[in-house]
Design a protein around this nucleic acid. Structure first.
Lengths: 235, 235
DNA sequence: AATGACACGTGAGGC
DNA sequence: TGCCTCACGTGTCAT
């Protein structure tokens, strides 16, 4: 908080108002002999009013900005003493994170246009470990067919793998399946990724054979449909 | 961009340095007769240096803040002429949206601890319409069992409803099923919501019967497990 | 003492 | 012209 006095001193110094107009500054068209003419007084009052307006407008602007910054502090559950710069840096990071997060979720959930298979074992990418068991994450997209799920379960059963988590999404005739499966370490190692991949590949081949006829349209129709569904799902 | 000259004039005015120290400002302990002592010069240089440091530090601070603001402009694909205040308002809105979005997604996807049934017809909440068909959104959580899916499909088939979208998530012995189904308007109206709800209710009752024995543990164990799975899924 | 962060008032420039 | 936004330099408080 600044003392109000300094404001006025400062201002009158810069404008050269109250002291005199006899300095090197260009004199006004009204080159009166007397330092205080009516016009001078009026224009000075106007100038003062303008300056006051300006000052207050600027204050409001600052308040607006700071209020939004405070909202962001709350949203990021930041201490009220967090720097503006640091806060904004965190906001940038958070927005990036959230953006990618939702992207990944929809990407991982919705079927892709093309057939895809992905098999990961958890030891590759993270240190997750369950004693005596090895965990795989399986994800694939393909055309949907009535007995796809049953085939999948039989496949996993024949590989002696237990399904811990399953997310099966079907939309517009295509299916996206994400599974987390556990296998005994006696029978399986990291090389079992190959088994899984091959088993899934044959699954997809069966799938593409069985749907050879029936679907004539291309992907465009499906895309339109998916968008409509997105609308519903958001309800 | 301000002319540098005014800086120096302004500064020397405020410090009262170059002119005189005979003003009302408190004189220094060195009350020398001469206006320019060595100590004065030295302290003035120091003061000047300090002021310069201060000025530049403040400039850097501004640059830091503005750089983050520009990053946010890019992230929100805002025009570079967007107000700081407006930009920040949009950032606040965006963060809120994204937060709720991810929350809804995980909420809609993961099974809830308690059994739940929700049936909506799209005409209630949105204007979505498909000529000659009425669309329902079905969502329920229950204990998982081997023939749950088959029962569900049979139920829908018996109701003459076609599944447009299905998202089936199973984790830790519980199942979350979200379906969008379409029904012919000849056979179904908005009142069919009741049929669906009743059919699902019996489905869940069958489910809870079939799992009466087997699961002894409560929900705590499952929660732990789900958290571990979240870890995997994020890979 | 020195540094950093902030609010302030101001001039400049865009409509 | 007036209104609005911004960058700037400053005083001030806290660490």
């Amino acid at each position: 908080m600044q003392p109000e006095i300094s404001d006025h001193i400062f201002y009158s110094f810069l404008t050269g108002g109250l002291c005199a107009s006899s300095s090197t500054t260009s004199t006004t068209t009204t080159s009166s002999f007397y330092p205080f003419t009516i016009e001078d007084t009026i224009s000075q009052e106007k100038a003062l009013a303008a300056q006051r307006n300006h000052k207050e407008a600027e204050r409001r602007r600052r308040e607006r900005i700071n209020s939004h910054l405070n909202k962001l502090r709350k949203l990021l559950s930041c201490n009220s003493k967090t720097d503006k710069a640091t806060l904004l840096a965190k906001v940038v990071q958070r927005v990036k994170e959230l953006k990618q997060e939702t992207l990944e979720i929809t990407d991982e959930t919705l079927p892709s246009e093309t057939d895809e298979i992905s098999v990961l074992n958890s030891e590759d990418s993270s240190s997750y470990n369950e004693d005596g068991r090895i965990i795989f994450k399986v994800s694939f997209s393909c055309e949907d067919r009535p007995d796809l799920l049953q085939d999948l379960m039989e496949t996993l059963e024949s590989l002696q793998m237990e399904t811990i988590f399953a997310d099966l999404t079907t939309v517009g005739g295509r299916s996206r399946n994400v599974l987390v499966v556990a296998a005994d370490k006696e029978h399986h190692g990291v090389e079992s990724v190959q088994f899984l991949q091959n088993a899934l590949k044959s699954l997809l081949e069966r799938s593409s054979k069985s749907v050879m006829m029936g679907h004539g349209g291309g992907g465009g129709e499906r895309l339109k449909r998916r968008r409509a569904l997105d609308h519903i799902i958001m309800v």
